[in-house]
């Protein structure tokens, strides 16, 4: 399965809408088999959604993301895990281990009030929204 994490230096990019690069990782069982950096192109919601879809991404891990971007990406069948912060390698490892819901990876203000429910790891999603 292929996932993407928006990156800024060695961190998760704080805002997907203006992020410039994504780390695309091919996961094989419990390890990252292949990885490459991809530019995300212009800050246009539909072109970003299509870009991720063309890259074959199934899951997007990112920082904050505005609703409009998130909806268009979800419409491409991509699961969005928003409001994630921290070092990219640690985030990737946590995702593989299923422990991404832990506090250190959560942006401030995105705890209990969050509308998104996910169990924090591979195969653990129950749909993107739980409105």
């Amino acid at each position: 399965m292929r996932i993407a994490i928006t990156v800024w230096e060695n961190r998760v990019s704080p805002l997907f809408d203006s992020a410039r690069t994504a780390l695309v990782v091919e996961l094989d069982r419990d390890s990252a088999r292949e990885r490459r950096y991809e530019p995300l192109g212009p800050e246009i919601p539909i072109s970003r959604a299509l870009k991720l879809s063309q890259l074959g991404v199934r899951v997007l891990i990112c920082g904050a993301i505005s609703e409009f971007f998130a909806d268009l990406i979800a419409a491409q069948g991509i699961q969005v895990i928003p409001f994630v912060t921290g070092n990219v390698e640690e985030v990737l490892e946590a995702y593989i281990k299923g422990s991404l819901t832990r506090d250190p990876f959560r942006m401030p203000g995105c705890g209990k009030r969050r509308r998104h429910r996910f169990r924090g790891g591979r195969g653990g999603f129950r749909g993107r929204w739980s409105i």
């Binding site: 704080p14 203006s18 920082g63 942006m107």
Partner: peptide, 13 residues
Amino acid sequence: HCWDVFRSNMCEK
């Protein structure tokens, strides 16, 4: 970190 709280489109660039 301020970028995790402020989350603006200018944080990164």
